[in-house]
Amino acid sequence: MSTQQRNSSHGKLIAVVVAAALVIVLALLSAFVWPGWAMNRSASEEQKQQQTTSTKPEPTTPSIKAKELPQDATPLLKAMPDAVLNFARTEAAPSANWTSASPLEEYTLTYSTGAIPKDVTLVVAQWSGSDSAKTQYDTLTGALKGTDVASGDVKVSGNSTGKYVVKSNGDKGKTATAVWQNDTVVFQATGSKESIQRFYSKFPF
Rank of each mutant, 00 (worst) to 15 (best):
L77P: 03
M80Y: 08
P81N: 01
L85D: 01
L85E: 07
N86E: 01
N86G: 00
N86W: 05
T90V: 09
A96T: 11
A96P: 07
W98K: 14
S100C: 01
A101Q: 02
E106F: 09
E106K: 08
Y107R: 07
L109Q: 09
L109K: 14
T110I: 08
T110F: 00
P117Q: 03
D119V: 07
D119S: 14
D119K: 07
T121Y: 11
L122K: 09
G129C: 06
S130F: 12
A133C: 11
Y137R: 10
D138Q: 15
T139I: 05
T139P: 00
L140G: 04
L140Y: 08
L140M: 13
T141E: 05
A143F: 08
A143W: 10
V149G: 01
S151G: 00
D153M: 09
K155F: 01
S157M: 15
G158D: 02
G158W: 06
N159H: 11
S160W: 06
S160L: 01
G162S: 12
V165M: 10
V166K: 11
K167I: 01
S168V: 09
N169R: 05
N169W: 02
N169M: 11
N169I: 07
G170H: 12
D171K: 03
D171I: 02
K174A: 10
T175F: 03
T175Q: 03
T175G: 03
T175A: 02
T177Q: 14
T177K: 10
